[in-house]
Design a protein around this nucleic acid. Structure first.
Lengths: 147, 147
DNA sequence: TTAGTTGCAAAACGTTTGCCCGAGG
DNA sequence: CCTCGGGCAAACGTTTTGCAACTAA
């Protein structure tokens, strides 16, 4: 993933680009879906064993502040981080069985958003939403008699 | 709220109905929206000062197990509990500004659910979903120039 | 009576913070 | 240089757990 340009830009803006920050950014950017701080730290330590998890937390907050990652709380209560340099709204379908995440475009939620706006005057966030459920593979693998 | 019948049924099923459990159930059932364990404990202690928060946690888990309350994690990472004896699917619009919760029927999410089913073969859970955003009151109170 | 529940305290867990050294610019 | 970020350890807030006393049934 191309985060090199972002790093250069950040350095020009006065941010310090350290090996730790680059490594953590690389791990987050290479991940395919949301990751917890601990998962990221585990991956980071494989390459640089002395990086502390506190550094991971601080760097993830920094990455969120500068707009390179977004955060969300999983249904396990843990904070999860995802690389998202541009601000395109997108959402997730998370399978409760296999844990697989499907990314869906904001267009799929647009009708719901406008319905909520009209029915209740409520403006649903653009920020990404995770819908829990079961993916097609797990559904077909399931016995019809089971709930 | 009528949870007396539920309590009677539970007792008949071999569950022990203690004063603590009845009080905690009453507090949860009287709440108008999702509450954290600590909020529930605060309310409980007003009536019975010696009830420990550990009892609140254990009772809330028990209430979830027997199907009288549902749980969800707020975007603050805290677990939140809501009295819901029947299984009617319903969802929430949570305002990020004032914290107000609007209950919406499952019908509002039905189109989205069927769209996800057809587009991605994904079965979105019936379990209630919280959509974050801003309610009409807070929107109109907001300066147009603000984000 | 007796299995299950409570209160208390301590542990567990994810996350944050204070400190001082070290490295980036 | 001089400021900011890093490692370490300790603090933090929420939730869980071990245990002895107790109580609902």
């Amino acid at each position: 993933v191309d985060y090199h340009a972002s790093a250069t830009l950040l350095r020009r803006q006065g941010h310090r680009i350290t090996p730790q920050r680059l490594l953590i950014l690389d791990v987050v950017a290479s991940a395919l879906s949301h990751r917890t701080a601990e998962e990221i730290h585990t991956e980071v330590v494989k390459r640089q064993p002395f990086i502390d998890i506190a550094t991971v937390y601080r760097t993830l907050q920094w990455l969120r502040d500068v707009g390179l990652v977004t955060t969300m709380v999983g249904n396990d209560g843990k904070q999860r981080y995802e690389y998202r340099p541009a601000g395109e709204a997108h959402h997730h379908l998370v399978c409760r069985d296999c844990g697989h995440e499907l990314q869906i475009p904001d267009d799929d939620l647009a009708p719901l958003r406008s319905a909520m706006r009209h029915h209740y005057g409520f403006q649903v966030d653009d920020a990404h939403i995770a819908l829990m459920g079961h993916c097609g593979d797990c559904l077909s693998a399931r016995t019809p008699s089971a709930s």
